[in-house]
Design a binder for these strands. Sequence first.
DNA 1: TCCAATCGTTCGGCTTGACGAACACTCTCC
DNA 2: GGAGAGTGTTCGTCAAGCCGAACGATTGGA
Lengths: 185, 185
Amino acid sequence: MSNTGAPLDVIAASLRRERERVGLSLSELAKRAGIAKSTLSQLESGSGNPSVETLWALGVALGVPFSRLVDPPTPRVRVIRAGEGPAIYSERAHYTATLLASCPPGARRDIYLLNLEPGPPRDSEPHMPGTVEHVIVSSGRMLAGPRAEPVELGPGDYLLYPGDIPHTAQALEPGTSALLVSEHV
Amino acid sequence: MSNTGAPLDVIAASLRRERERVGLSLSELAKRAGIAKSTLSQLESGSGNPSVETLWALGVALGVPFSRLVDPPTPRVRVIRAGEGPAIYSERAHYTATLLASCPPGARRDIYLLNLEPGPPRDSEPHMPGTVEHVIVSSGRMLAGPRAEPVELGPGDYLLYPGDIPHTAQALEPGTSALLVSEHV
DNA sequence: TCCAATCGTTCGGCTTGACGAACACTCTCC
DNA sequence: GGAGAGTGTTCGTCAAGCCGAACGATTGGA
């Protein structure tokens, strides 16, 4: 999380955003969180400096982690072809580093190593809301991304897509391996 | 972040831990954060339900993100050789996924694609405290890890090491590429 | 030994967040 | 049209967080 910006405004916006995402009314959320709806109203209007307990209760009631309430939102689908990414520094000729994805505040990223062989696509149902997945192909070729619009990837290609909608993965060549970074919240 | 556990106890412990890590006295920290030392004393003793503004001020004064105050700590050095990791699910014979690193709460992970050629090692000075780096080799061979105890890695190998101590990276073969995930906070 | 400085804790006060009731408002349904 | 249930807002009251001062304990130097 960044320590910049006014936390109270961010919290106000986050509360409203998350509440509407879940589809709860202000009154209903207040009831579930066990706080007065007047309190919640003031929080969403930006006036107010909630205590930890209050915010915590709201986080639990909304089913979102604390962090998401004190930090801003995120992106959609992106592909960076091998060699395309911005090489942020190449101190020496024999070294380059490419920033594929700067992690948004409060996010959690689990790292998986995938080994796939050609066959029927491996479909995944939506994960929890806010989940984003990154795929970086090491070798072989594969088809990955949202089930509605999969992308073909080769070695070194990078793909970003929402993990909270149906998505798929399928090897196009034997011995395909890739790295999957699942980012939730 | 997990929504489990009593947030106030966690905060109490985190505050004391971070303050002692920085080497500040309770009085000094209170002064820098612009809050009464009595308030801080009560917070560290577990009694108290701080407001967001108070916690935020403490986070800024301590130079740590909000998240670290409401969530627990982390690990050290680990190597998972290609094929060694626990394959958590292999629904079909042509697919395996290996969990390399489960992301600790509140952490941020930036993803870099590295392309290295053999040459002198690329030394890095320590990053901010709490930083952890993950390296997964796609092709070639490389030497990476803490400068004091680098590890040789081949395709598919995974390495975890602290990023807040001097560390290094060096290609052992032409065309070596790897993924670097830098996890801070 | 005594004084001074700093440590962290405890005690009244003032401020403020949280609560509950009353409010205006919109829709639905009889 | 009017009763009803829902929305989100505003207001007065009470409790609690925050503050500042005073406290005992500890350390280092004159």
